[in-house]
Every structure is written in structure tokens, then in C-alpha cells.
Amino acid sequence: MTDLVAYGYMQRALLAAVLIGGVCAVIGVYVVLRGLAFIGAGIAHASFGGVAIGAALGVNPVGAAIVFCLLVAWAIGYSSKKSGVKEDTAVGIFFAVTMALGVLIVGLMEGYRVDLMSYLFGSIISVTWQDLWMTVSVAAVIAILVAVFYKDLLFIVFDPEAAIVAGLPVELLYYLLLSMMALVIVTAIKVVGIVLVSALVVIPAAAALQLTERFNRAMLASAAIGVSSCVVGLFAADWLGVSPGAAIVLLEAAVFGVTAAVSPVRRRAL
């Protein structure tokens, strides 16, 4: 296994897995506690539209997807708050419309050979230095934002009304959280793909919350589960000759199964 790391592609894949597994899991704790998992899935699928638009315009598809997903995330947040549309209905609409847009654009571009499978199911082995540079930047931005707004995001997730009463800019912080989700999700698509990415956000956090009743510990445990699942899943996939994305997600699911079975939180609640 150590021999694998000698290959450049494996080094890049490993670094990307560690960073993405970590940031997804950290954001995931806010996402799971605030009940935003479905918005995450919606943003992930919207990225397909973003990738297609980027390809059509001849710009970096991931960059285009980031911009597009930020807009979609804000639109979901806005339409569920301001118009009477329920949050999950808004996601359900954006989810399909943006996917359809992507399919339409790709279909219209003659001779364009976008590797759709790599966006749908990820291709961590083909992470380029440019991808990696982007991943490092996003991870750094997320780490700084979480460090600065840790307590404020915790407050709006725990008790949004009291946060408004306390004078916090709750709506702005909610959009910040949606933006962080969009950034993280688009970046993580390289690892597990559009279809599986919300698992990287949701499962480690859900598993961590089975283990502890403290927010800060849940965040640390979630990051540890996310990073280790990505690393172990990557090596296991290489060894077994299977898809890394699928291996990582199934491994995380297994970790969740174990934590739910041994959960001190759940047992104390019974």
C-alpha cells in the first residue's frame, strides 16, 4: 500500500480525499442539525447544470459550477423564506430543472466529449494539480469561516428565533451556511460525484452525533470519520479495483451503522 503513495496521482488523490472528507464532515454537523441534507443533495445535482454551462462557455467547468451552485443555493434559500414555497418543494424543483438544463446543454454541444460519468460518480484518481489547488483554497476558506463564525452558526442552527432576538444577522448567516455548503459540495464532486456527494456531508456528521452530545466533539468526531473514511476508502478501492467514490460512501455508511449500534447517546435516551 505504501508503494501506491509513491505515484503522483495517488498523492494528489490522497490529499484531496483528506481535505474534502474533512470539510464536508465539518459543514455536515451544521447541515444535519439544521435539517439541510436535502438542500445539499439539491445543490449537488444543480452542479451538473453548472458544469454544462461552464463547458458551453469554454470556462473552467468546476469554477462555473461553483458560481452556479452558489446562485442555486441562494435561490432555494430565498424562495423557501420569501415565497410560500416549502423548502423541500423548492429543492425538488431546482434539483430537476438544473439537471435538465445540464442535459439539454450537453446535448446541444456537438462533438463535446465531457466525461459525464466522472462528474456523476467522481474520479478522484484523475485529480489534477489545478483541482487540488482549488480544493486547498476551498478548504482554507471553509476552515477560516467556521473558525470565525463557529458560535454564530451554532446559535442560528440551535435557536434561530433567540438569535434574531439577540440581534444576530440570522438571515445573512443562513445564506453564509448555504454558500459554504455550495462551495464544499462542488469541490467534493471530484471525489465521489454528484450522485453520492451528499453522503460525504451527511453520514460522518450523523455518525458523530450518535457518539457524543457535545457540539464541538461532534464536529471533531465527524471530521475524523470523514477523513479516515475517505483515506481508507481510497486505498480499499485501489486494492479491490472498485470505484473509490462508492467505496468511500459504503465505508461511511458502515461506520454509521456501527456508531448507531453502539451509540451511547441513543442508549441513554432509551
Binding site: 451554532l154 446559535f155 439577540a166 444576530l168 457535545r214
Partner: peptide, 26 residues
């Protein structure tokens, strides 16, 4: 009823949130 009682937060952390009103964001 507006509070999620499964939220992973201690009594002390909950009470500390009261101070956030004068602390300001960040």
C-alpha cells in the same frame, strides 16, 4: 417545543449563548 432537545449542547453552552447578544458576530 421550539427547541430540539436532542441538540448536542450542554447546559453551560446554552446559557453562554445569552452573551452572544452583546458580543457581536465573529
Amino acid at each position: 417545543s421550539s427547541i430540539d432537545l436532542r441538540f448536542p449542547i450542554s447546559v453551560f453552552e446554552t446559557v453562554l449563548m445569552g452573551t452572544f447578544a452583546r458580543l457581536g458576530v465573529g
